[in-house]
Design a binder for these strands. Sequence first.
DNA 1: CCAGGTTATGCAACTAGTTGCACATCCCGC
DNA 2: GCGGGATGTGCAACTAGTTGCATAACCTGG
Lengths: 203, 203
Amino acid sequence: MSLPHAILTALLEKPSSGLELTRRFDRSIGFFWPATHQQIYRELGRLETAGLIRALPQDGPVRGQKKEYEVLPAGRAELERWTAGGDEPKAVREPLLLRLRAAAVVGTAGLDAELSRHLALHRAQLADYREIERRDFPADGATTGARAAEGDSAGQGDSAAQRDSAAQGDRLQHAVLRAGIGLESFWVEWLIETRAALSAEPS
Amino acid sequence: MSLPHAILTALLEKPSSGLELTRRFDRSIGFFWPATHQQIYRELGRLETAGLIRALPQDGPVRGQKKEYEVLPAGRAELERWTAGGDEPKAVREPLLLRLRAAAVVGTAGLDAELSRHLALHRAQLADYREIERRDFPADGATTGARAAEGDSAGQGDSAAQRDSAAQGDRLQHAVLRAGIGLESFWVEWLIETRAALSAEPS
DNA sequence: CCAGGTTATGCAACTAGTTGCACATCCCGC
DNA sequence: GCGGGATGTGCAACTAGTTGCATAACCTGG
């Protein structure tokens, strides 16, 4: 039940059409909550029906025409409610580990190829994340004016409180990114280690 | 589409009834591929229909009576086929990160409580894994006669080839366990770090 | 001998993500 | 001015995991 909240978050950062959302998902929220355009359209429909978002008025034909959505107060409230709440962390579900377990029983044919394929993918993803970090958080652990990943939280007047909360927003976004980096790093290391263990002489 | 293969693996390690499988899942395969007893029964039915496993013959009434399954040659073949193949690694789907992202927009109320709850859970899981490692792989990175996590791969006659493949099975099982340990370690570190970043004075 | 908890099997409805496809509009080049 | 790719919206069917519940056998204590 997280997709609607992912969408609300994205729309608060910036009102968008379905396809724009899809694209922004691809390079941001989608890293830890992927969604296809079909899912997004379906959910936009539901959110609109539920009165949490609305389509910005516009003219001309409807079908095949860009349609922008913005979050209504009820939507923001719902997102706040959800954010404050909690979830059981849902269990890992990792087919690769399953395959290793199976290989322990029926043999390791083809395993190394699969491991090295995964290694390449995780390395690529890690490089991506590092690039994003370099771009968006250049001052390492700091909040030095860096504008966060994507959502420019509608910057007007600039009270001290607003600056503080913007700084904290940055910190949170950086934390999320570090999670991605940490996870990918872990997999890269583990894959290297495991391939080595596999190819070692049976003692 | 991994559950049937998880079940085949478990059944190859040791023929079992539905409930036994459920319990073994809870402390072994289920760490990276959780399944409820309902899922398992359903899948056992399908696998039997498909001719990949069969129920061991027994007498007496059927309903509510223990029923053991074993893997047929076709099942083993299917598992080998699947193991040799590959998957795209499916994307991470982590609601906690989503919540952080949302908090960056609507405020951090309740966040720290949630983070510390997760921290406790991951610490507990990590301790569990470490305990299992201590028990099943005492000689650190080695294969010193340690009997793997659970499946005692039906040990009779003991050719050199069999010893080798048993050693490799151990190594694989250890690799899987190390993945669990690595992942939990990562989360523990990240959660500590992130809580610190959150509570720091806005600069 | 029977009430109540434990073990065990299983169905059905629901939820959410995935896949495949349909169709409209726009715009660019020929 | 029109054919075709890019952009954009959307439905429908499918798959797989989740939740809730029904039911049977067995065992133990009163």
